[in-house]
Amino acid sequence: MADWTDENVRIVCELFAEQVEIGNRSSTHLNKAGFTNVIQKFKQRTGILYTRKQFKNKWEKMKVEYGIWKQLVDRQTSIGWDDSDKNIDMPEEWWKKMANAVKGSGRFRYKGLQNEDNLSIMFEDLHNTGDDHWGPSSGVAPSQAIPLDDDDEDEGENEDDSDPDEVTPSARPKRGKSQDNDMDDSGSDEDDDDFKIKALRVLQSAQNNIFCTALLLSKYYLTYLHKNEPRIARTDWIC
């Protein structure tokens, strides 16, 4: 299970935003090169090795949170603001009203959106153009589009890594052979990444076991020499 502390979230937001700025976002999420760079740089900065699926789940979760936050701050022009806490400052009645109007808004009652600058780089153009499925033009509330789960590892077990098809109420999306192949390739890339990471962990574990075994053998061998030193000295004349 991924451990997303405040510091780790700050770091991953910086890395995500960096990849977006250099053009490694395909449509609504990072492409393969972007996630690969994030995996490597996050490992360098934190010592933690997460899989592509874990990072993709975190991306999706932060995208939903950003969508909820934008709905709150864009709800009215005269919204109050607490600069010390970096959060919305509105009466209790307003928050109760928002709890019904914007599902999931309660998470920001006592703590505002963190890392907003980097999240804006990651998602603001999607929010403005309506290209993403939680945009205002879609008519779908963020909490309905993607359910939030604190367990990031379990959240993505059945998740398809390919881009979602655009669905309209009047027609079902048509998928051609080439689109199916693209989705298969995307899933294959994710499997390859996960396999490489798991293989690396196995090799690191095996290397640690070999090192520990060598230390134990050296210790037992030195103990044997120390105990049998007088006997070895008495038989040296035979040689």
Score class of each variant (00 low, 15 high):
Ala2Cys: 07
Trp4Asp: 05
Glu7Trp: 14
Val9Leu: 15
Cys13Ser: 11
Leu15Gly: 12
Ala17Met: 06
Glu18Asp: 11
Val20Ile: 04
Val20Thr: 08
Ile22Asn: 07
Gly23His: 08
Gly23Met: 07
Asn24Ala: 11
Arg25Asp: 07
Ala33Phe: 03
Ala33Ile: 15
Asn37Glu: 06
Val38Asn: 13
Lys41Glu: 15
Lys43Pro: 08
Gln44Pro: 03
Gly47His: 10
Gly47Ser: 07
Ile48Ser: 04
Gln54Cys: 11
Gln54Pro: 09
Lys56His: 10
Glu60Lys: 14
Glu60Leu: 11
Glu60Trp: 04
Lys61Asn: 09
Met62Cys: 09
Met62Ala: 06
Lys63Pro: 02
Lys63Phe: 01
Val64Leu: 14
Val64Pro: 07
Tyr66Gln: 06
Trp69Pro: 05
Gln71Met: 15
Arg75Trp: 08
Asp82Ser: 04
Asp83Tyr: 00
Ser84Gln: 10
Asp85Cys: 07
Asn87Glu: 01
Glu93Trp: 01
Trp95Val: 03
Lys97Asn: 09
Lys97His: 06
Met98Glu: 04
Ala99Lys: 09
Asn100His: 09
Asn100Val: 04
Ala101Ile: 04
Ser105Phe: 01
Gly106Cys: 03
Lys111Asp: 02
Lys111Arg: 13
Gly112Ser: 08
Gln114Trp: 02
Asp117Trp: 00
Asn118Trp: 03
Met122Ser: 05
Met122Ala: 08
Asp125Met: 05
His127Met: 05
Asn128Trp: 00
Thr129Tyr: 03
Thr129Ser: 15
Gly130Gln: 04
Gly130Asp: 02
Trp134Leu: 12
Gly135Tyr: 01
Pro136His: 08
Pro136Ala: 08
Pro142Trp: 00
Ala145Gly: 10
Leu148Arg: 14
Asp150His: 05
Glu153Met: 07
Gly156Thr: 03
Ser162Asn: 12
Asp163Ile: 06
Pro164Arg: 05
Pro164Trp: 01
Pro164Val: 08
Gly176Trp: 00
Ser178Ile: 13
Asn181Cys: 07
Ser186Gln: 06
Ser188Phe: 05
Asp192Met: 10
Asp192His: 10
Asp192Gly: 05
Lys196Ala: 09
Ile197Trp: 01
Val202His: 08
Leu203Thr: 10
Ser205Ala: 15
Asn209Ala: 14
Ile210Leu: 15
Leu216Thr: 12
Tyr220Ser: 14
Tyr220Leu: 15
Tyr221Thr: 14
Tyr221Trp: 12
Thr223Pro: 00
Tyr224Ile: 09
Tyr224Ser: 10
Pro230Lys: 07
Arg231Tyr: 00
